[in-house]
Write a protein that binds this DNA or RNA. Structure first.
Length: 107
DNA sequence: CGGTCGGCCCGCC
DNA sequence: CGGCGGGCCGACC
């Protein structure tokens, strides 16, 4: 479940659409993740922790949605440099954690 | 840095 | 059935 995957993103971290899909067991379905997030309205869901593979927010800069997402992330300590976040530092899961994350489905 | 081109998979017309 | 466009992605120029 995509929603479940999004829910597992730790505070202060971000996850790309592609990674969310992978963790959810749906490789190559990044676009689906975007579609789902667009339609879902769950307030408790940390949707704002999902960004694109370029480390950017997938909303037009200056848009209300962009600002909302960015503020939420910054409030958790995520730092933007030139409109981007360093995925090596804030990306989840980290490369060495990915295996564990995919294995989580089995358990 | 920006722009394009496939590739991807779905949903809608 | 074909065409188009998405909160995408990677490769290339």
């Amino acid at each position: 479940m995509i929603i479940a995957a999004v829910r597992r993103i730790p505070r202060g971290k971000v996850c790309t659409y592609g990674s969310v899909a992978e963790v959810a067991g749906l490789p190559r379905r990044a676009r689906l993740v975007g579609t789902v997030l667009r339609q879902t309205s769950a307030r408790a869901l940390p949707w704002y922790r999902v960004i694109n593979a370029g480390g950017r927010i997938s909303f037009p800069v200056g848009s209300e949605a962009y600002d909302r997402q960015r503020h939420k992330l910054e409030a958790e300590g995520v730092v933007f440099v030139g409109g981007r976040v360093d995925l090596r530092r804030y990306g989840w899961p980290a490369r060495d954690e990915q295996l564990d994350e995919l294995l989580w489905k089995v358990s």
